[in-house]
């Protein structure tokens, strides 16, 4: 976790993420458990971030969408 550059830490590559509106928004099971709003932007990030164990295209496609590509 510590080796991942901070600018690459997004909800969309956190282990608590599941797509809610692919690719822009995700459902965070950790926030749900904490009674916080669970639907957040894929490109957001909080202090509880932990890396996924398999890559997906969420962050790549959210970045593409944000840049209008």
């Amino acid at each position: 976790m510590g080796s991942v550059e901070k600018e690459k830490r997004f909800c969309g590559n956190c282990s608590s993420h599941n797509p809610y509106e692919y690719p822009a928004r995700i459902f965070c099971s950790k926030r749900y458990a904490q009674n916080k709003e669970p639907i957040v932007d894929t490109l957001w990030c909080c202090g509880d971030w932990s890396p996924v164990n398999q890559d997906c295209h969420c962050v790549r496609d959210a970045l593409k969408k944000k840049s209008g590509a």
């Binding site: 809610y20 692919y22 997906c56």
Partner: peptide
């Protein structure tokens, strides 16, 4: 998997449909 799409033989379902169900 990378697109969060599940396969049931030759049928696809988006993971977000499960997530919305879960919620």
């Amino acid at each position: 998997y990378r697109y969060h799409i599940f396969r049931i033989y030759d049928v696809f379902v988006a993971e977000e449909d499960y997530v919305k169900l879960d919620y």
